[in-house]
Amino acid sequence: MMKYCYTPRAAIYIAALVVLLFLPQLLSPYHLMLMESGLSLAIMALGLNLLLRYTGVLSFGHGAYFAAGAYAVGLLYMYLPDKFTFENAILAAILASAALSALFGFVCVRHTRIFFSILTLALSMLLFAVLEKAYHYTGGSDGIRVPIPLFFGYEFEGMRRFQFLIGPYYYVVVGIFAAATVTMLAIVNSPFGKALQGTRDNELRAEMIGIRVKRYRWYAFVISGTFCGLSGGVWSFVNGHITPEISNWVFSGEIVYMVLLGGFMIFEGPIIGALLFTYLRLYAVAITEYWMLILGATLIFLVLVLPGGVMGGLHSLFSRLKLKRVS
């Protein structure tokens, strides 16, 4: 890790963290809550990108692991209300999503390309169908309410939801987001991360030099799913209510959208994408009843004109400017 501490990237990260910590003074409460939602989704986008960018497989069903995390929190509240503390809830989210992604991933990693995408999609819909139909256990399509939890024994008794979210919880989200980002950066730069990229570029060659391709892909799947679960757990408190929709394939499609919007070839792209998507969606919904038209048109524009996403576009713009200055 030490070698990353003295790079320009580290300086940018610290600057970004400082900005994030001062945002409560700058933004209105409403935008702060959006930011929280965006930051928690960013954790998931990072998780998905471990598979897309570094392993070379596209999951169209990562909503399932997000749902596993969110429902772990919701079900903990429903069945063990006396154990419902923040740390237990997040732990439950991580464990549930790790277990589910280990199970589903074991099946999925045997395939690549379109088979992988369809299989992940089918599995997430399986979870969606179960969550919706098991009405007596999961609340069905009405979902589950998620109240304010205990925090390491500290109680926010009498605090209103809104105050809790714009106050202490914002810093919790920023903290978890920062930790997740640094962890993911360490993972993709580790020998494990490099081996994954090897399996992506040439599966046969990786196999020949002794990388156990499926095993490694499975590990990547579980890590990726666990990030989604963490994201789902954090997000469930922000949203205050969870429904099976988050396991529907449309939500999984939106995750891929976020990653592409930011630019999946750049490590930070998915983070930017998740934040942008949160705002884009909000503004589209605010200005017109036909917000899907705006989102759809934006997506088509991205695919056709800006395949590297916003960050990819900026990156190529900068390198072009640099070239001009040299010549």
């Binding site: 897309l52 596209l58 169209f60 390309r113 379109i114 995408s117 499609g253 891929v256 959208y257 592409l260 999946f264 036909y290 917000w291 899907m292 038209l293 989102l295 759809g296 048109a297 934006t298 997506l299 088509i300 991205l302 695919v303 056709l304 395949p307």
Partner: peptide, 17 residues
């Protein structure tokens, strides 16, 4: 593949609205 899937996903949103 990701672009092929995403463009049809975009078309889906476009047509629905």
């Amino acid at each position: 593949l990701e672009y092929q899937l995403l463009i049809t996903f975009g078309i889906l949103m476009l047509i629905e609205d």
